[in-house]
């Protein structure tokens, strides 16, 4: 019964096109325990969002995608689920904060309508007025001080950070077992970001939610995650407990990433090559983390 919430082994992904097959994931293995916050960081275009979409079962519907590998959610084999079963998981047991909130929200419906739909996935008979109240309360928790106005708006009438918080609130409201947060803080000012992360942190502890946290902001990752996977060109290159990995990065790519973070103490924009043969060195797995449960 001590199975991880999410278990991925040797996940491979390719996209077929008229010029042939382009491989994107070259065998990713990753697991998340119950209540654990795991960060996935790395190169832009290395395969973070596609991994998230595969977990949610969204990429499987794309005719050009070729996917293989082990995918288990609470011991259930995700690859064996029907499209309908996958759909039932989304928004209830698994939820996702998408990278581009403005386009992930539907511009044709008000936020209230979309929120009600999400709430009714768990509470099918929920009355409109009650849904509005629950949604408003959830928005207040992510530092939105005029929830009524936001709920009555369309996404294009809201700022980038407001849309992002709407997505965050929607993703959290049904108490998912697994939360996938793809760049959840990019449009938030640092105070609101801290507040939002604090909320996520609290909910995770309360409900033992497992989190896959995708971010380019290493400072945020250092504060939020228990464990980190570093990905480069579709391969995991380093894995370890957050503290260990930040204090003692071992893989050349991780080391380069760490030294490329601009510092608030100044010193200019670092000039470190973003491509190098050494970034493809074999993976380094820090001891006393990962695998064992």
């Amino acid at each position: 019964m001590n199975q991880p919430t999410l278990n991925i082994e040797n996940l491979q992904l390719g996209f077929k096109s008229h010029v042939g097959m382009s491989k994107v994931l070259h065998g990713i293995s990753l697991n998340i325990r119950k209540g654990e916050r795991v960060a996935l960081v790395g190169e832009s275009g290395s395969g973070k969002s596609v991994t998230a979409r595969i977990i949610l079962g969204l990429l499987q519907t794309l005719p050009t995608a070729r996917i293989s590998g082990v995918l288990e959610f609470e011991g259930r084999d995700l690859t064996k689920l029907s499209a309908k079963q996958r759909h039932a998981l989304r928004g209830t047991e698994m939820s996702m904060i998408f990278q581009d909130p403005t386009s992930a929200l539907n511009p044709v419906y008000t936020i209230a309508v979309q929120f009600t739909e999400v709430l009714r996935r768990r509470q099918p008979k929920l009355k409109k007025l009650l849904a509005f109240e629950q949604a408003a309360a959830a928005l207040r928790q992510v530092a939105i001080d005029e929830p009524e106005r936001v709920l009555n708006s369309y996404s294009f009438q809201l700022s980038g950070g407001m849309n992002q918080r709407v997505m965050i609130a929607m993703a959290l409201i049904n108490n998912p077992t697994l939360l996938i947060a793809d760049e959840p803080g990019t449009a938030l000012d640092v105070s609101v970001q801290a507040q939002t992360l604090d909320l996520m942190h609290k909910l995770v502890q309360e409900h033992q939610t497992s989190v896959l946290f995708i971010s380019h902001n290493l400072g945020v990752v250092r504060d939020f995650a228990d464990r980190v996977y570093v990905i480069y060109k579709g391969r995991i290159v380093e894995e370890g407990a957050t503290q260990l990995l930040f204090s003692n990065p071992q893989h050349p790519y991780t080391q380069a990433l760490m030294s490329a973070v601009p510092r608030i103490t100044g010193g200019g924009i670092p000039n470190i090559p973003d491509v190098s043969d050494r970034y493809s060195d074999p993976a380094y797995i820090h001891p006393a983390s990962g695998g064992e449960l």
Partner: peptide, 30 residues
């Protein structure tokens, strides 16, 4: 500035020296 997530100890020091006047900073929320 007090709420900026940072990665080095030097930055923590700078941030704290600016943010420790009881203002709205909350970098230690987590």
């Amino acid at each position: 500035i007090a709420a900026i997530p940072v990665v080095t100890q030097d930055e923590v020091l700078l941030r704290d020296s600016l943010g420790n006047d009881g203002s709205t900073g909350n970098h230690n929320l987590l």
